[in-house]
Design a protein around this nucleic acid. Structure first.
Lengths: 347, 347
DNA sequence: CTGAAAGCGCTTACAG
DNA sequence: CTGAAAGCGCTTACAG
């Protein structure tokens, strides 16, 4: 059966296409009686509005794209859901793509989204994304966009994420105050801006207390659980003493705690362990995990709001919004009980 | 600046719009020389193809919608990523919406997706979705769709998910063979088809060994961690003895294990605990969790493939694909050591 | 308050 | 191998 169109509805209800179009959008320019008649016809015919055609003509799409890396980490799950929630409320539909931190895939996704004429894009840039790349894949279409969680130093654009330096500092201060002195920083991908900034904050805090962050104790791996396990192995191989481990993220910390346990070390005793994010599991693990809340929900919601504002006012100055992190002290960083820092058995 | 269109490219390269259109799609009907010239012009002008317009004319959209409940559970994260992966490979773009198990929201999402003229839809139906509701929100547009993970009994449509009865049976058999006799079934939303089927499988297995599933020990709550904790409280309140707990999902099981521990009971000793899904954390917890793998990755990938096939052949018979679950025996259900079933202190 | 005509940016026969 | 014309299903001035 052929599709029912506006013209069919117009014919059936004895008005013009223009009038039906106004009824669809509930314009006040059409009388209540006419509206009722037209709606009756739509119902009768089983009419389904074609937004694509409407939007082609109106030169917008009422869609927004999210290009993220993946959704395995609960942080990104919350972020995605917050974004979807705001867009839904504002009548926008979300297009989604995962780059898996692969540059070529990211480029192809950005181009596909541009070709679908999304009104705007939210991008969690993959590692090593350069300003040039973004310029190339987004510049031609000029699609308004907001960077989320990770920024691209050489790219002028809206950015919203947590203040990673402040987050690192919070953990550093807390650990030193709890009597820790030899702090390692484990996991996360080497060149990620978040990793670099968190480490800087940590270092600043330590130096504020007259301590240093031993470069040999900063070990980048990956941002998943496995990255935490591997980093602990590598840390042990250094043979250096440590009494605290700050992990790139909670998920990394879970891996680290697991690996420590396999070596007979319980987090929160000889070695304090902390993460970033405050994913739901952090409070529920045994021991519960000290961490810094990075507020994915708020980040996602505000990123979506910011993008919608930019869509409406393209000439707005680029904004950088840094959310304030929040320290959550739990069992995994209980105060130092006076014992010596943990020295790994080098077997 | 005004958008660059096909006409602009045609004018700049001295050919017709039709020819440019063929070049965009890399048709063999255009000579290599002409293609080169046209592509040169596109590059020069910064042309961005408008798929929306193309698809309006061609009567397809190269988009597929996923309407799921949420993405907090790692099962759904994997499912979503698998779907995105297959669609990307086939040149489709994903539209995404979360119903949060809210019927009205699901209805509005389905209608929005229809209006965006997606070529097909993947739906994880929210609880209590009826065939009538789907008929109403999908019938008018006639959009091809595939139900994923959960099915709707009164609705004729493609469905792909794990064989929940078989999964329940696997766990039941395993527990009885490990010497357990008093099995509880905890968590999950009461009317979910998955819950009902898993419980049926469990019951079948127990009865096969001359045991029964005490109805008082089947306690529905919710499908999250909190649901597991609450169910353990409710179970304790029954005052009945139990030596094994099967949870609606791994996430529920994590909550149950936590609640048991708070009561001084360690999973895998007096009480065996098992879940469904085999989420990545299941193998990594302490104790590691016995579970039944439900293969979200495969489910998502095959659901997407099935949908794309149905889009191409709308008259295909509806398919029901049940994936075979896989038992993963771990520490949380170590063999019964001869001690009596755990009787909760009723305080 | 409503209608006739043009147009959004493409593709699709059809013709040559 | 390429082009002129019509049309996908809407909205947008403009006119009355």
């Amino acid at each position: 059966m052929p599709r029912v169109t506006l013209s069919d509805v117009a014919a059936a209800s004895g008005v013009s296409k223009a009038t039906v179009s106004l009824v669809v959008r509930d314009s006040s320019r059409v009388s209540a009686a006419t509206k009722a008649r037209v709606r009756e016809a739509m119902e009768q015919l089983g009419y389904v509005y074609d937004r694509r055609a409407a939007n082609l003509r109106a030169q917008r799409s009422m869609t927004v794209a999210l290009v993220a890396t993946n959704v395995r980490n609960p942080y990104f799950a919350e972020l995605t859901m917050a974004i979807e929630r705001v867009l839904y409320k504002r009548g926008y539909t979300l297009l989604l793509g995962y780059s898996h931190d692969d540059q070529e895939r990211q480029t192809r996704l950005l181009e596909a989204m541009s070709e679908h004429r999304v009104d705007g894009m939210l991008l969690v840039p993959s590692y090593d994304t350069s300003g040039d790349m973004l310029q190339k894949s987004l510049g031609a279409s000029g699609t308004p966009h907001v960077l989320v969680t990770r920024h691209v130093p050489s790219h002028q654009a809206d950015y919203i994420g947590v203040d990673n330096r402040a987050a690192g500092q919070l953990l550093g201060d807390h650990l030193v105050r709890s009597g820790r002195q030899h702090v390692a920083f484990l996991g996360g991908p080497p060149r990620s801006t978040a990793r670099v900034e968190r480490e800087q904050g940590l270092r600043t805090a330590l130096e504020g207390h007259g301590l240093a962050l031993d470069p040999a104790l900063s070990i980048a791996t990956s941002a998943d659980r496995d990255g935490g396990e591997r980093a602990v192995e590598l840390l042990a191989e250094t043979g250096r003493p440590y009494d605290a481990i700050v992990c790139y993220s909670d998920v990394v910390a879970f891996g680290a705690i697991s690996a420590l346990r396999a070596r007979g070390v319980e987090a929160g005793r000889e070695v304090a362990v902390a993460g970033f994010d405050d994913v739901p599991d952090a409070a529920l693990q045994h021991p519960s995990l000290t961490t810094v809340a990075t507020h994915p929900d708020q980040t996602g919601a505000e990123a979506a709001e910011l993008l919608l504002r930019r869509i409406e006012e393209p000439d707005l100055q680029p904004h950088t919004v840094l959310l304030t992190p929040e320290l959550k002290v739990r069992e995994s960083t209980r105060s130092q009980d006076g014992s010596a820092p943990h020295t790994p058995d080098t077997r």
